[in-house]
Design a protein around this nucleic acid. Sequence first.
DNA 1: GTCTATAGTGGGATAGAC
DNA 2: GTCTATCCCACTATAGAC
Lengths: 187, 187
Amino acid sequence: MASDPRPLSPRARAILSAARQILEREGAEGLTMRRLGEAVGIRAPSLYKHFPDKAAVEIALIEDGFTEIADRFEAALVEGEDSLARIAIAYRAFAHEHPHLYRLMTAGPLPRERLHPGIEARAAAPIVQAAGDPVLARAAWAFAHGMVILELDGRFPADADLDAAWTAGLAAFGAAAQPDRGDSEAH
Amino acid sequence: MASDPRPLSPRARAILSAARQILEREGAEGLTMRRLGEAVGIRAPSLYKHFPDKAAVEIALIEDGFTEIADRFEAALVEGEDSLARIAIAYRAFAHEHPHLYRLMTAGPLPRERLHPGIEARAAAPIVQAAGDPVLARAAWAFAHGMVILELDGRFPADADLDAAWTAGLAAFGAAAQPDRGDSEAH
DNA sequence: GTCTATAGTGGGATAGAC
DNA sequence: GTCTATCCCACTATAGAC
């Protein structure tokens, strides 16, 4: 069920691993080709033997992120268990555990033409299934993303009860959700 | 009711006006001190006679944006007229009319220590009043921001019916909202 | 309040030797 | 696959003359 690891040389994997560490620790601005080379023990120009450009490194990180979050969503999808709320909890947890990766995954346009096909769709599918309707799924996603990004950016008042805001939003969407039973064909 | 214009020299106002044009046309990355000087007809270093640093220019733009959106929110707040939906429509319209300004206003942490006091609160107040509850207001804001930013970034599928997603979300929140009648003291 | 000159920093990426 | 050397770019900001 988990997607197959992309065919990368061991060296490329090591570079990605170092890139992930830099990203998680310092954020996207900290991830430069010079810093990355230093972390992996080679000079920056040598990185270009393994990745065509910096965007390729970032895209690989994004793809790993989508795969990881899709795994969590699929685990949260339990028959008759208010899956939408369970997915929202998983969503929030992922974002808080990997804030800089989450930002990289969601900030600005997705370079879809360079992503492997299906990776994005796999992460989206459980949300649609839990909501029972693509339209409601989009609204719920917007709510979750808005909450997460405003939380991460410190936009809410310092004394705001964010658990309560999540609960209020999930109650509103949960009342509208009619989860797909899985016994009908997707269209 | 509209807040008083900050006391700025005419030159500073002209610089801000040029900065706003550059921002709206090219986005935040396009707004550099060189470009700004060029647009206003002076060299970049001369700008520092009018603003202490680049952040001061951006902050002034952000404050103008908050004032403008607060004006719209206050106009949307009509007794017994589903104000929450009216505010959401105003919110979405502002963001679509000024996408780069909206991004500047909402991307990353707010430099609150450099904002004039009350500017942010004035924009937030109508949302709280329309929702009737700060907790629900925060959830509704997160939904609106999430919708807007995902829309602006082209994150939804190309064929997604976003009007429908807005309607679905607003219906969910509208059902929960109990607008403040204004006849009780704020606490 | 404007200018010129420039410091200081950092970035992505390429060429060509080994 | 790694290196050195380097290009070229762009930015914010300051110093000091006028």
